[in-house]
């Protein structure tokens, strides 16, 4: 089935440009096409008309890279739970619908152009301690370090975070708490993460604040919009890790 939709797309020439919605009409969109394919159709249309195509981020188009950052009809990644924009299909819309598309809005994510934002702030948080730097040596027997299955599963769920920034986009405070907590949790739950646990919690939270993200109000909007459905439990764990680290660090 094909549908016709009206798009109101946020167009902004650069970080300091004011920006505004621009209306586009796009016809005969297959309901089987993904949202990004529809955007491709629109951009082809714009190029054919000699207009400036819309800048938007996308890469893997299979829900694992986290690039496609669109705020569609007031929701990160549009309607539907647990999906990225590339996993959103046009069958979620009706013929004649008007669809509003905005970029992620956060002070820490400046707009590069149109729907494209700079998410370097997330990289900075990761660089502050979201890794294990101890020399692990050559591979040892798999059963040398026992890990509880429950902990392994929890760590895995945290590690599912793709760093897309939907949590920041959804949060009324533009807080990066869910992202940071997932990155702290995935290591806090495993023995390999213990060596640097104190520095990790302190430094990643400090970097998160330095980047200008807000604090957590526990609304749960992040969890509701996360394409990987990461739980608020990780934020509670981050809070525990952080306080333990604060109280025990020697300086």
């Amino acid at each position: 089935m094909d549908i016709n939709v009206t798009l109101k797309v946020w167009r902004q020439n650069g970080p300091n440009d004011k920006g505004d919605f621009k209306e586009y009409q796009i016809n005969k969109v297959s309901t089987d096409s993904s949202f990004l394919e529809m955007m491709d159709m629109l951009n082809n249309q714009l190029i054919e008309n000699g207009e400036d195509p819309i800048a938007f981020d996308h890469d893997c188009r299979e829900g694992i890279c986290g690039m496609c950052s669109m705020y569609i009809n007031g929701r990160p990644h549009g309607p539907g739970d647990g999906i990225t924009t590339c996993q959103l299909h046009m069958r979620s819309f009706k013929d004649g619908d008007t669809i509003y598309i905005e970029p992620w809005r956060a002070t820490a994510f400046p707009i590069i152009k149109d729907l494209m934002v700079d998410r370097t702030a997330f990289d900075k948080i990761m660089q502050a301690g979201g890794f294990v730097s101890v020399n692990t040596g050559s591979a040892q027997d798999a059963n040398n370090i026992p890990v509880r299955k429950e902990d392994a599963d929890e760590a895995f769920k945290a590690a599912a975070c793709i760093g897309c920034g939907a949590c920041v986009a959804a949060c009324k405070n533009a807080s990066a708490m869910l992202f940071t907590s997932a990155k702290v949790s995935q290591l806090a739950l495993l023995p390999q993460g213990q060596t640097e646990a104190t520095e990790r919690a302190l430094n990643m939270v400090a970097e998160m604040d330095a980047q200008g993200f807000g604090a957590c109000t526990n609304t749960g909007a992040c969890m509701a919009e996360c394409p990987k459905e990461i739980s608020l439990e990780h934020i509670a764990r981050l809070n525990r890790e952080y306080m333990a680290a604060s109280l025990t660090s020697r300086d």
């Binding site: 007031g74 929701r75 809005r105 200008g212």
Partner: peptide, 18 residues
């Protein structure tokens, strides 16, 4: 928290989970 989102969204969605 207000400073963390200096520019607000134009379209807001009321989430039933929030």
């Amino acid at each position: 928290n207000k400073a963390a989102r200096a520019v607000n969204y134009q379209v807001a969605h009321k989430h039933d989970k929030v």
